[in-house]
Design a protein around this nucleic acid. Structure first.
Lengths: 216, 216
DNA sequence: CATCTATGTGAACGGTGTCAAGATAATCTT
DNA sequence: AAGATTATCTTGACACCGTTCACATAGATG
């Protein structure tokens, strides 16, 4: 028993944590928070299991009592990220009386821009464990908002196949912009447009005009 | 001197290599080829410097005489990948008399589908070292093909800003589809459409209708 | 109280990227 | 041709990683 005692039996520094199901702090949640801290501070390639454990003040083996392996931890982090993403989209949609598609798409991309490391983890681990972005398919989540906006944009709501195709296409476009907009070679374009926000909005406005041609 | 003698002073097994600037085989190229072999055989997460060196039959430190570090090797692999990608796009464009945008986009996505591990490496390392996808900006490369197709689609060729914006948007969309189309939750949709190809074509057809609205 | 189980530690294994020191072989100079 | 130079490769080490194991400890349960 040496140096890991930071949160042994004592309340966590951040009293954000309310429940404490076990004799030590709620390490599971503490680990996810620590992971997000590491992510923002040191970037995604520094996000190792050991670094997270270190940040949380526990031994390298401790996380294995709460997560099957590293991928499982990443999955939990990604889950938190997807929640934040869908919150951001919802907030944008509610602020826009027309609930336009581009409004939601811009919110999506801006979230990715503001949380680049987290966004990377979200899709990195959802590629490996393909269980994850089912979360994005849940009814109260982003996908249904896109669907609503798509109907508002003129897609026939009774044509389920077409509707879903358009939603998926829009989702892919947003993801593509989110991943690429920070490429160095776009910098002159960003300056020409007068800022990142304008660049994002310009891209999203051109990324798909879902209208009559496909909705028959 | 133990076991790394595979290509010491002897011609490389694959006589694909013509030039041999130094006293041992052209290890630089041999490493890139070995990396591609590892990538296809064991997937992207198995692509370690040591694995590549092992595959090429040299010691773990040998690559450091040809590449600054691991990222530099990845960069070289990605470079080869981008060449293959632009070849695939050009071939598709030349096969299509109308040189339509979707033709090129579909070729892009299919290349990503057929070389998933390589495609991952291409964009993984181009995010870190933002020097890379300038290669995709070279004049004889993909970007100018997209530009041509964009003009053919009705974008005003004299409006350089608008033209570039539309190209970037199309590029982002293709990248988004390329990264996401293999997600598990899209499987039912793929079956409903009758195959991957149809799915890709449907998505690309909806990903951006670059027409009058933006070209004024 | 004693016991059980959930949760933590410590040490170890094989893997990784990277580097410094030494060996070896092609090239350059004379 | 011989010696010096330089490029290339090996060896061995270091720190870090993910993971597992045996063991310690502290709440919960009886």
């Amino acid at each position: 028993m040496k140096s890991y005692g930071a949160l042994m039996n004592k309340p966590l520094e951040q009293d954000l944590i309310e429940a404490r199901p076990y004799h030590h702090g709620d390490l599971r949640r503490a680990l996810i928070l620590a992971a997000e801290r590491v992510l923002e501070r040191d970037g995604p390639q520094a996000l190792s299991l050991r670094a997270v454990a270190r940040e949380a003040g526990v031994s390298p083996a401790a996380p294995y009592h709460h997560f099957k392996d590293k991928g499982d931890l990443m999955l939990a982090i990604a889950g938190a990220g997807f929640e934040g993403l869908s919150d951001a989209m919802r907030a944008a949609a509610e602020a826009d009386p027309d609930k336009k598609l581009t409004t939601i798409g811009v919110a999506y991309v801006k979230y990715a821009r503001d949380n680049p490391a987290l966004y990377r983890v979200m899709y990195d681990c959802s590629r490996n464990e393909d269980s994850m972005p089912d979360k994005a398919h849940d009814d109260d989540s982003g996908f249904s908002m896109v669907q609503d906006a798509m109907i508002r944009a003129g897609i026939d709501p009774t044509n389920d196949l077409e509707l879903k195709l358009c939603c998926i296409s829009a989702w892919c476009s947003a993801h593509g912009v989110a991943e690429m907009f920070s490429f160095a070679q776009f910098q002159p374009m960003i300056e020409a447009l007068g800022g990142e926000d304008q660049f994002i909005e310009a891209l999203m406005a051109r990324s798909g005009t879902y209208a009559a041609p496909h909705s028959k």
